[in-house]
């Protein structure tokens, strides 16, 4: 198999979409945080705890919907904790983000051990999963059907959310006010916008999105929680958010690049290349992408200044 054959197959693009879903949720969560003027750095830690909350909630309620809802509730709670510390108690957001990540890392292992007796995964819970669905009509189209159809419900939810969030932030008063608060708090306050209210709304939405991302990892991508399973996707979401200039369709585009990098890494393992080196690819791509983006952006800024 040549590399070209590997890349230009419908399977490659199918996997890319599958792998971009958690990053897309992360990036949308980061976008919502940023729109409300809140540092998105807590996303990784929030997603990790939600990834555990999903299967556990599913196990106790007995169905996947219960699991996803639990993950979303936990996501919102964690987002509020992050918001409380950074907005009210004046904690440095970066330190709060690191703390949240450490906290989730410890608490998830702690709870996994407490619930299942081992520290590695929740396999023994046999928690429910979110089903994959075939889209009628589209599934019969050659090539396109094989790429677009047959994904997890959550994947389609993420794509629908891209549209909904675009409408929300640009076409509804609530969304526009959140953006106003994020862009310039003082001027928003001067026209009578209740700043804290809109910050809390953005925390609420971002928490739900991070919850969905976490739930996708442990209820759809695989069927259980395993330790540290988010593996930097929250941070990559942050990179994708800034590369997409905070505009949903552009963010989706950059997320797709990361999805392809991930997918390529998986495919290359078939070529007998060393696994560990290939595992680096998504992270290397992220560094290169964010560097090029930032470099160009600073050049544009300089030109404007002149």
């Amino acid at each position: 198999m040549s590399i070209l054959e590997i890349i230009f197959s419908s399977d490659f693009f199918f996997t890319s979409i599958r792998l971009m879903t958690p990053i897309l949720f992360a990036a949308l969560a980061c976008m919502t945080f940023s729109k409300g003027g809140i540092d998105p750095i807590g996303t990784e830690g929030i997603m990790l705890l939600c990834a555990l909350a999903g299967p556990v909630g599913g196990y106790f309620t007995g169905n996947a919907v219960g699991g996803v809802l639990t993950a979303m509730v936990v996501g919102v709670l964690m987002a509020f904790v992050f918001g409380y510390f950074t907005l009210i108690l004046d904690t440095n957001p970066v330190l709060a983000g690191i703390a949240l990540n450490t906290f989730s890392g410890g608490l998830t292992i702690f709870l996994t051990y407490y619930l299942t007796g081992n520290k590695g995964s929740t396999q023994s819970l046999n928690s429910p999963v979110v089903p994959n669905i075939d889209i009628p009509l589209i599934e019969n189209i050659p090539v396109v059907g094989a790429i677009v159809s047959g994904h997890s419900i959550l994947t389609y939810v993420s794509l629908i959310l891209v549209v909904l969030l675009t409408l929300f932030f640009w076409k509804t008063p609530y969304g526009v006010r959140i953006r106003a608060v994020g862009e310039n708090e003082k001027s928003a306050a001067s026209v009578g916008v209740n700043i804290m209210k809109y910050k809390y709304i953005s925390l609420l939405i971002a928490g739900c999105l991070a919850g969905l991302g976490g739930a996708y990892m442990s209820m759809s991508y695989v069927s259980m929680f395993s330790r540290d399973m988010i593996a930097g996707r929250g941070w990559i979401g942050m990179a994708a958010e800034s590369m997409g200039f905070g505009i949903p369709w552009r963010i989706t585009g950059s997320v797709f690049i990361f999805g392809m990098a991930d997918s390529l890494a998986i495919r290359l393992q078939m070529l007998n290349l060393p696994t560990q080196l290939i595992s680096c690819i998504p992270y290397v791509v992220t560094i290169i992408a964010i560097s090029i983006y930032s470099w160009q952006r600073s050049k544009v800024k300089k030109k404007k200044a002149e």
Binding site: I41, G232, Y283, S291, S294, W295
Partner: peptide
């Protein structure tokens, strides 16, 4: 390049691990 050091350094941690 004015790249956000937070993102790049976090990615580098993963690269260091695997490499």
């Amino acid at each position: 390049a004015h790249a956000n050091e937070l993102v790049t350094s976090l990615m580098i941690n993963y690269i260091c691990l695997y490499f």
